[in-house]
Design a binder for these strands. Structure first.
Lengths: 258, 258
DNA sequence: GTCTTGACTCTGGTATACAAGAATTTATAA
DNA sequence: TTATAAATTCTTGTATACCAGAGTCAAGAC
């Protein structure tokens, strides 16, 4: 998986970013990280440079390396990328998707509905634990399968980057009352039904609607956090770790060129 | 503009890539470039690393650094990114565009039409010279203005990267007979008219159609080049250099983080 | 003539030394 | 006590030295 030390450093830093051990605005130091990873500054520098290109870190010469602050504008931009790309992917997928892939999407919808039902019957205020894990992993897998179907590797890379971006905000996986959960399932199902009818325009429409919904939830969460003076929430419950692992695995199909 | 040596190296390498001095498959060497730029390997390495993330170069440990080979699949993927993002940008732009921006788009359409007319009257088989320059610069400015209107900096960055990608293929700016030129103008005009009507769906539709057209032309050119055994055409006429300069200026709004 | 083998060269990966500016701390003066 | 200035520490930027693996080529064995 990880070839050279620079890749190792990249993975470890990114993991710390997503897990919340490194928070927005934090000042980090090349030498500190180097010591921590037991390597020299050189590979750490390369990893930082890469994360800088991806917008997660930024460096000020002779001052330090900092974790980028999430901003409302950036949150919106990230979700808009998802709308544009995943919407187009759904449009394209409609004309090329196989019966097998459709069946798989159907299964994922069923799993999500089952998780939603179990949640309702659990009488909990927020979805959590094993039920949440089932829901989120099927949610993610649904999106990934559509991206894969669209047969554009850059779509997948782009979206996985955006997902990590929003993970870093620490918002979108929290705040899951039943109505929101139900609506997520419903919109997934509408995308699925549109794909079954090979109706690309509607598939795109429902996909965009779904992602716009998620954006609204994330923005509301963001605004609330700003007011609460607790602008950043590390992901410390194990559910999110599971999703994080899935994400990492998907992204870690490293830059394999010809 | 360019702060440290690593940025300088980045610009110079990228310029060589776009101008065709470095061709697909070429093997380059960190030390050679370092000598050429009169700097050490370190900043050159950072520049290469960045170009690698962007997919323009790739490195094989202990073997060498190579210029990525353009492939048909990658050409398609790049144009699909443009369809997805520029299409969405047009959709969003329709609801937020100002009257001033609309007037500017109108002027750009007029300029393109005038260039097309001058081309027709010149009786040349292919557009070239000052007329081509006018046409291309208004073409590019039209797309950029819509992206800017959509107010998503990542859209702009993404598309400028894609433009450079296709520039490297050395295809899309050649092969410009009158019918194709006319159609480019026509579709720009339709996008413009849809934006004037605030009809986002149609603006997106015509934008997608336009980019799909361009993709077809580029693919045809690519296939022909493959048959001719001349898979790569450096950009050596000064028109393309003009557009290159515009692109570089637009992209070189460097990664300014908070 | 063909194949094998070994030396040699070239490559990128890594560690480290130093430079120069930013940030912080300490010392000094009022 | 406060304000200013000097010294120190810490940061990234750059250059360089060394390493190990890949590729090349020529000498030798058959």
């Amino acid at each position: 998986m990880a070839g050279d030390l620079s890749d190792v450093a990249y993975d470890r830093i990114r993991e710390q970013l997503i897990s919340g051990r490194l928070k927005a605005g934090d000042k980090i130091s090349e030498s500190t990280l180097a010591q921590q990873f037991n390597v020299s500054r050189t590979p750490v520098r390369q990893a930082i440079r890469r994360l800088q290109v991806e917008g997660l870190l930024y460096q000020v010469p002779r001052s330090g390396t900092y974790v980028s602050r999430p901003s409302r504008a950036r949150l919106i931009e990230t979700y808009e990328i998802r709308m544009a790309v995943e919407g187009f992917a759904a449009l394209k997928a409609a004309s090329v998707i196989t019966r097998e892939a459709l069946r798989e999407l159907g299964r994922q919808c069923d799993n999500m509905r089952r998780a939603a039902r179990d949640f309702r019957e659990s009488k909990q205020p927020l979805m959590s634990g094993e039920i949440l894990e089932r829901f989120l992993s099927n949610d993610l897998a649904f999106h990934v399968l559509i991206l894969k179907t669209a047969e554009n590797s850059r779509f997948t890379k782009l979206i996985m980057g955006s997902r990590i971006d929003t993970m870093m905000f620490g918002t979108h996986t929290h705040d899951r009352p039943l109505p929101h959960i139900s609506r997520v399932w419903l919109l997934h199902h509408r995308v699925y039904m549109a794909l079954r009818r090979r109706d690309g325009q509607m598939a795109r429409h429902w996909m965009e609607t779904h992602i716009r919904d998620s954006m609204r939830v994330a923005l509301a969460q963001y605004d609330r956090a700003q007011i609460d003076q607790s602008p950043y929430r590390p992901l410390d419950d194990d559910m999110d770790k599971t999703v994080l692992t899935m994400l990492n695995n998907m992204v870690s199909a490293r830059g394999s060129q010809q």
